[in-house]
Nucleic acid binder design. Structure first.
Lengths: 261, 261
DNA sequence: TAGTGGTCTAGACCACACA
DNA sequence: GTGTGGTCTAGACCACTAA
């Protein structure tokens, strides 16, 4: 069988609706099968077909549905697990990765105390409102020059000590009504649960800055103190930029951990 | 065939010395075959059996040598390629990854200009000498409390502007004679070529600090300026800590880029 | 044209979780 | 016990590189 073509012969298919790969007849699509399978699976994760609380269909069911071999599905599943979109448990099944605290701590929160284990920071909301997108944010999120964005400012504490002042910027159009309810500590879980937006990856740019008077006041320390500025853009499963977040961190007793492999 | 056991029947073997996996008869070693193959391959990379300038044996040769199937060797090779220890080129072969500038830029050097592409920094040596290991260094490199270490201090420039003051600490025992010759810009290549030490991964801890008078002078700016401190420990292929490096970076025009996936 | 890695398939058996 | 993912094998064909 040629690469990137699908057999049209029907196999014994389950009762669930068929979901076979379509090979564009005119448009040449020479991507490997397992890639196409991967994209199909990502789409199902993104659209909420599967949820973290229930195992997704097993390898053979998926293979039969899609019309490829189990080995090809496995390759797609393994890569998705590698990218932290799925979690696989031998004997139990394969699950959509949830944004629980453990995962966030592992994947998205790189600050750790100099001594001791990583802990999830507590948060206190300082300010919530809607503004015209600052230029950098509009660019980061690919919004029109002064599109409306929700701005959340909060203070985060590590082991009881104020350590981070964080400004979160979100496109108002996509997150309408977010400010109506109390803002939880774990935002990515909220995005997924209330807005159907799953964060898949993020990119952070770090600089050293001097604390502004305002940030210093919120953190309870002196202005001009050196602080770590983390400028994060978080992306959804479809690759679109979702959230712009700027964190100002005191690093006397904590550090940012980066693994180079 | 049972998991993690090797057939002893001899296959058609090449002229090269046999290198079959040994299954500890008394000690239970239940690690998957492809893991054992991986370790064997890492050992050959580490000991210099293979060099970056020549392709390693192909999958079938390795499989025959070791006594497993080609698919198992492939799994090991793919993982090593994923970890940046090998590079695979379709049609050409599989190569040991070299510490050339492109790889270092991609894997180990996370600083980039705010605008423009990544570039390899130039270096000027400020100081070279041998000292008793500072406590933090002795701990980082698992050395005895005041073992001798080589210390290199250098100034690095990005796009012609001084941006980084770097202190590199190396165990004198392992790097004897390093200071006899000129110190090149690309240190990891030197470690591999002259001392048989290949760096496989590193861990960086970042903090914001105020520039000391001395660092400020070397960087040509004012003391107390906020700067990014990067505290790196680099590890060899055997997992042992090799190098301790502390970089002080001006981040007015550059940033540290961290991908969270 | 020969040799390499890349993809895909089919089937076997093992290890683990859970009822 | 049953069902899941994990490992291993064997073989086919494709795509790319270099001589």
């Amino acid at each position: 069988m040629a690469r990137a073509t699908l057999k049209s012969a029907s196999k014994t298919s389950s009762a669930s609706p068929p979901a076979r790969l379509e090979q564009g007849a005119a448009t040449a699509d020479f991507r490997p099968l397992y890639r196409q399978v991967k994209d199909m699976l990502v789409a199902r994760i993104a659209d909420g077909t599967w949820t973290p609380d229930k195992a997704i269909p097993n390898e053979f069911e998926l293979a039969a549905d899609i019309g490829v071999s189990q080995g090809t599905v496995r390759k797609a599943l393994d890569e998705l697990a590698n990218e932290n979109l799925l979690v696989r448990y031998q004997g139990r099944g394969t699950f959509v990765a949830s944004h629980d605290e453990a995962r966030i701590l592992f994947q998205f929160f790189k600050l750790a105390p100099d001594s001791g284990d990583k802990i999830f920071p507590e948060s206190t909301i300082l300010q919530v409102g809607q503004i015209a997108a600052p230029r950098a944010t509009a660019q980061a999120l690919a919004l029109e020059p002064s599109a409306a964005v929700i701005r959340i400012r909060r203070l985060r504490s590590l082991a009881g000590r104020p350590a981070i002042v964080e400004t979160i910027l979100l496109p108002a159009a996509r997150f309408a009504g977010l400010t109506d309810a109390p803002i939880p500590n774990n935002l990515y879980q909220l995005y997924a649960a209330k807005f159907g937006v799953r964060i898949g990856r993020a990119q952070e740019r770090l600089k050293a800055v001097a604390l502004t008077a305002r940030d210093a006041r919120d953190l309870g320390t002196a202005a001009q103190t050196p602080a770590l500025m983390i400028d994060r853009i978080a992306y959804g499963l479809d690759g679109r930029a979702i959230e712009h977040r700027i964190s100002i961190c005191l690093t006397q007793d904590i550090h940012y951990l980066s693994d180079l492999k």
